[in-house]
Design a protein around this nucleic acid. Structure first.
Lengths: 241, 241
DNA sequence: CCAAAAGTGTTAGAGTTACACCCATGG
DNA sequence: CCATGGGTGTAACTCTAACACTTTTGG
């Protein structure tokens, strides 16, 4: 075999988005075990090498389960990162040696997007610490994880455009139209007048008004709504056009 | 290192689309060297293992160059295929052994989309035979190549929706609006009335009317147009909305 | 009463759809 | 002259954007 061909290690990395109570996008970062590095250098995207009989989608599902304790999370593969230099810093090489007890020459990764309600209990079976981090506060991460995150942002926007319903994975079961508006504004380039947004959303038959309304707000209380996935699947209305 | 982790071979495979004179989408299939198999089993998607210091994008660019002789082709990574069983038929295992002179346990592939004007001269430095094949006449191919092709069709449609201008990679330098219409119809779910399509297209300032018109047609001759990428980049009009 | 946001209504304008009509060409 | 498709015009309709107005709540 020509020596210039190569076999490599393959991992998956997951960018899990959440939407916090200050209307910011957050992502989940895991704390890795890594001695002799300052605490802010111990964060990373959750990920894992793939197992020998495992498809990448299954590996990503496994990583998400080990990360959050949640069985089935929505996920979407979005890109394979394979820059030969993506894991070539001394720290990265040392960490891989310690983590996998093996000298890893080259590693490529398949990146996944996932979405999670930010109030959902996080119950990791693999990591000691898992934290939400606002997207504009993400520290310098190992490997090319910062690059993966910045590309994931472009990707989540496309995802929302092509399938509006996945936005409800980021909201609580019951939500106000204002919450939905602020999430949509954080995710979309399009600027919509909130009044018109309200009118449009409440015209959709898959957005079900509840009897509950907000309490303790210094203005007229907003109604809570829920999303009905079954009705949505029948009509599949795009938000715009 | 835990023995259940694995390192694998990584390849890229390219689905190159063309648009023929009978208004059909075609893809490029390569003839592989494979003794003792009927001719119709010797077709495959063009692809290659990645080299040791090569990113996947570069590998795909190399594959396209070896396939067509063209230096820079538009390309888009669309999915990593990593089913553990994707290369497990006897034929597939035998072919990999002969092709790479090595026993390959597992191989994952990163699939790319590309586009080519069907009249462009194909000048392969690697394959003896490279042929256009109408998309609905694609034979049974090795590995999961048929699956890759069917997913590439969904992907090219999304691509057109998100960036209309790439459609001109499939048309000759000068084209009639009817040609563009038929290509668009082959690629999009949306059904547009051809008169309205004509009006809309000719209103775009990046579609430049030429002085030339069709000859030898049994009806009023249509005008030829060309696409001006520079003007397009400034306005970036979507075809619809 | 005031401020703030909820929620409804109205209107102008932009974009889309359907289709009528005339033009040019080969047979 | 006819059939076929090129190309333009127009009118109805739908969707969107802007914004005025009323409602509700806490302070």
């Amino acid at each position: 075999m020509s020596p210039s061909f190569i076999h490599t290690y393959v991992s998956v990395d997951c960018v899990v988005f959440g939407f916090d109570h200050e209307n910011r996008l957050n992502i989940l970062l895991a704390q890795r075990h890594f001695e002799n590095v300052p605490i802010e250098r111990q964060k990373k995207l959750p990920g894992s090498l793939i197992l020998s009989e495992e498809d990448v989608d299954d590996a990503a599902q496994r990583v998400l389960h080990e990360l959050t304790g949640i069985k089935k999370m929505v996920l979407k593969q979005f890109k394979c990162f394979a820059d030969p230099m993506r894991a070539s810093s001394n720290d990265d090489i040392r960490w891989m040696g310690e983590e996998y007890k093996h000298n890893i020459d080259r590693i490529i990764t398949v990146a996944y997007l996932s979405l999670c309600k930010i109030d959902h209990k996080i119950n990791s079976t693999k990591y000691d610490t898992v934290d939400w981090c606002p997207i504009d506060k993400v520290p310098l991460l190992p490997f090319d994880h910062n690059k993966i995150i910045s590309e994931s942002l472009i990707e989540i926007r496309k995802w929302i455009e092509s399938d509006f319903s996945i936005i409800f994975e980021l909201l609580p079961k019951r939500f106000t139209i204002r919450q939905l508006y602020q999430l949509y504004s954080a995710l979309s380039e399009k600027r919509i007048d909130i009044k018109n947004f309200h009118k449009k959303i409440s015209s959709f038959n898959y957005i079900i008004p509840l009897d509950e309304i907000e309490t303790n707000v210094a203005h007229r209380a907003a109604r809570y709504y829920k999303f009905d996935a079954k009705v949505y699947k029948k009509n599949n209305t795009k938000l715009i056009k």
